[in-house]
């Protein structure tokens, strides 16, 4: 299993696609907002939490279909399925690899982009905390979606349609936590709820993803 993680990280670094793309998208998305919404810093400050969370969420979404697609095409998935590594383990490791290559960089980049949208000072701590706790859920749910649509040609659009409704609770609680944090209100409850959803997703979804993979490998 560790070999799987090491290989995925090596591939992400070597192929260079993994890190760069999602971060670039997050940056572009955040810089586009003022062009659309207007430069008034007051407006930007109030919508900053939501925009940052949406940017992170969409950045995760973009890199989901690559989780299994490459391994599906070059036969690695078939070979791993016949190896002692259980598919549940494969799904969990793929989610972890996706989080490390996509989720974590977003958490690191978010505060810097918060400056662009002049997020109130009190919000930064909560932004980092909620993203840190929320993005693993985005990866786990995304891995499940990727497993569902791996066998479908051009399944990327369908993948987004399936996964976005599942992202709803994490987005709601995550953005709410930052909004309340930025306004100085009590933001611990939404943060704990984000963590709850993440733990639930990490516990259940690898099994659902493995079941979907088994069906697609049939």
């Amino acid at each position: 299993m560790i070999a799987l993680l090491k290989r995925d990280l090596m591939l992400a670094i070597r192929a260079g696609g993994g890190f760069g793309l999602s971060l670039a998208f997050f940056l572009i998305f955040t810089t586009l907002v003022p062009f659309g919404v207007g430069p008034q810093t007051g407006v930007l400050a109030t919508i900053a939490p939501g925009i940052l969370w949406l940017g992170a969420l969409l950045a995760c979404l973009l890199s989901l279909d690559r989780i299994f697609q490459l391994d599906w095409e070059d036969g690695t998935l078939d070979l791993i399925a016949t190896s002692p590594v259980p598919l549940e383990g494969l799904a969990a490791i793929k989610a972890l690899a996706h989080w490390l290559t996509t989720g974590l960089p977003l958490v690191v980049a978010a505060p810097a982009l918060g400056l662009l949208l002049n997020l109130p000072a009190a919000g930064y701590l909560w932004l980092i905390a909620s993203l840190l706790l929320g993005t693993p859920a985005l990866s786990a749910i995304g891995t499940f979606g990727a497993a569902l649509t791996v066998g479908i040609k051009r399944g990327g659009l369908l993948l987004s349609l399936l996964v976005l409704p599942l992202y709803m609770p994490t987005l709601i609680f995550g953005a709410l936590c930052v909004v309340r944090g930025a306004a100085g209100q009590e933001a611990l409850t939404p943060l704990l709820l984000v963590a709850g959803i993440t733990l639930g997703s990490l516990a259940i979804l690898p099994f659902a993803a493995a079941a979907a993979l088994r069906v697609n490998l049939r």
């Binding site: 499940f144 609770p169 959803i197």
Partner: peptide, 19 residues
């Protein structure tokens, strides 16, 4: 599988919205 997982998240969304 989608229906099962979707139902869990639908219930969570229901209460997330009230929040």
């Amino acid at each position: 599988v989608l229906c099962l997982v979707g139902s869990v998240f639908a219930v969570i969304s229901r209460y997330a919205l009230l929040f």
